[in-house]
Design a protein around this nucleic acid. Structure first.
Lengths: 126, 126
DNA sequence: AAAATGGTTCAACAATTCTTGTATTATTGA
DNA sequence: TCAATAATACAAGAATTGTTGAACCATTTT
């Protein structure tokens, strides 16, 4: 119990819902418009963006945009805050990092390190 | 040009097909059976696994399995080698790392670092 | 060569996801 | 209160994706 990194990894792996959260996030990002949407929100950072701005910038119909934002929100990848009559959407970086952590674990397990140094993006256990 | 990391990042970003490859990989992994399939191949490492073994272990019908393996192969996430009358499927770690790199970039851009240290899995530019 | 094994392909159907038009809710400002 | 703005909700059709049974091809064994 004296290795915090390994501990948090084990915890992540023990979480029985980690897989379904990863699946939801993967599914949410596996769509061209949603991936761009999410990227726009990541670039916007803590300021976030309103649906109106997003619809204009990405040239997506408002109801279609609303549908896709809901998908991202349902997957936990974005948060919503109401400001007057506007909604502000923001990327949820913690959830995104959880996804990266999940994928990294499964990337590094059992073989990638035999292929070559630096082949794993995290470099953590390689 | 004296910073190889930044260089490889810029190259990755300049690649006009990076997004479509990322989308294909995300779509391939955004399915419970395929994600488990891929995980099994990652754990199997360089030895790989045959469809027969995978079908038995994961309890998937052979034709269904074949369909999903084809999806993974089409996304570039697995490779196929023929050995006698068996096929050996292996996870393509390079492609998986490319996906992680793509996602990491978009995770770290423009704001995540303001949230807190260590919030980004790669820790690279944070 | 015939039978067995390992695996894929195809077609048809089922299920899910995406889009679009229309209607609705909530907030702001005159 | 009335009109305008911001955004979502719903329903129906279109499109895509997933599953299954049956047929097929290649390799090995007898």
């Amino acid at each position: 119990m004296n290795h915090p990194e390994a501990e948090s990894r084990a915890a992540a792996q023990a979480d029985p819902q980690a897989e379904s959260r990863a699946l939801a996030a993967l599914g949410a990002l596996a769509h061209a418009q949603r991936l761009r949407l999410f990227r726009a929100l990541v670039v916007a950072g803590l300021d976030g963006l309103t649906p109106g701005v997003l619809a204009e910038r990405l040239e997506i119909a408002r109801n279609t945009l609303s549908f896709h934002l809901k998908e991202l929100a349902h997957a936990g990848l974005v948060t919503i805050e109401q400001q007057g009559r506007n909604l502000v959407y923001r990327a949820d970086f913690a959830r995104m990092n959880e996804l990266l952590g999940y994928l990294s674990e499964h990337c590094c397990q059992g073989g990638v390190c035999e292929i070559g140094p630096g082949s794993c993006v995290t470099g953590s256990s390689c």
